[in-house]
């Protein structure tokens, strides 16, 4: 066990990454209580294995890896085969909106509520969701994301690509259903 002062310093540094871990856990479990349980367990495990953390390296990535491994062990029974993602083909939201004459395209994004974006992220299969969380939300490099997830960089890139396609398709469907974009209607983005 580390000296008390060293343990305190370690815990303090680890807690600076709490929001990242909590957000990740919440998006993975979809349940605030389960997310807190998962994060607490991750921190306890991190404290137990702090000797394996190399000072000066990416503690956020190290903690996230512990948390997501626990998620797969405890919540998913280590089954990582639920990677099914509907094949939406090459769906590029920008091109879709441009083709439908919704201009300016970026105005559509301004009209989509944050809750709808979170909902679209939540609909992604966990293996794809966690890549979006790491790269798009937490700003991890592909390399750090690959190390955190224990997969090659190419896998990070392919999962990210497919996740973004699905995400854009979900946001497009929402924009259509909510009238933000009107099919075969006026060429302007609907004003709210």
């Amino acid at each position: 066990m580390a000296e008390p002062a060293a343990q305190t310093a370690f815990a303090e540094e680890a807690l600076t990454h709490l929001d990242t871990l909590y957000r990740g856990a919440l998006r993975l479990t979809h349940d605030p209580d389960a997310a807190q349980d998962l994060v607490q367990e991750a921190y306890l495990r991190a404290l137990r294995y702090q000797h394996s953390y190399q000072a000066g390296t990416n503690m956020k990535a190290w903690l996230f890896a512990i948390m997501r491994n626990l998620f797969w062990d405890r919540f998913k029974g280590s089954r990582k085969d639920d990677v099914s993602l509907d094949d939406v083909g090459e769906f590029v939201l920008y091109e879709k909106l441009r083709d439908e004459g919704a201009r300016p395209e970026a105005d559509v994004l301004d009209k989509i509520a944050a809750s709808e974006v979170v909902s679209a992220v939540d609909k992604l299969p966990p293996l794809h969701r966690e890549v979006v969380l790491l790269v798009d939300v937490e700003g991890f490099s592909y390399k750090d994301a690959a190390q955190t997830l224990g997969v090659p960089i190419g896998t990070v890139m392919s999962r990210l690509h497919r996740a973004r396609q699905q995400l854009q398709k979900s946001l497009y469907d929402y924009a259509r259903e909510s009238g933000i974009v009107r099919p075969n209607g006026p060429t302007q983005v609907a004003q709210t």
């Binding site: 909590y22 957000r23 944050a114 974006v117 979170v118 992220v121 939300v137 700003g139």
Partner: peptide, 10 residues
Amino acid sequence: VKHSCECDTA
């Protein structure tokens, strides 16, 4: 995506 998901904090 970043700003929407960052709303959640511990």
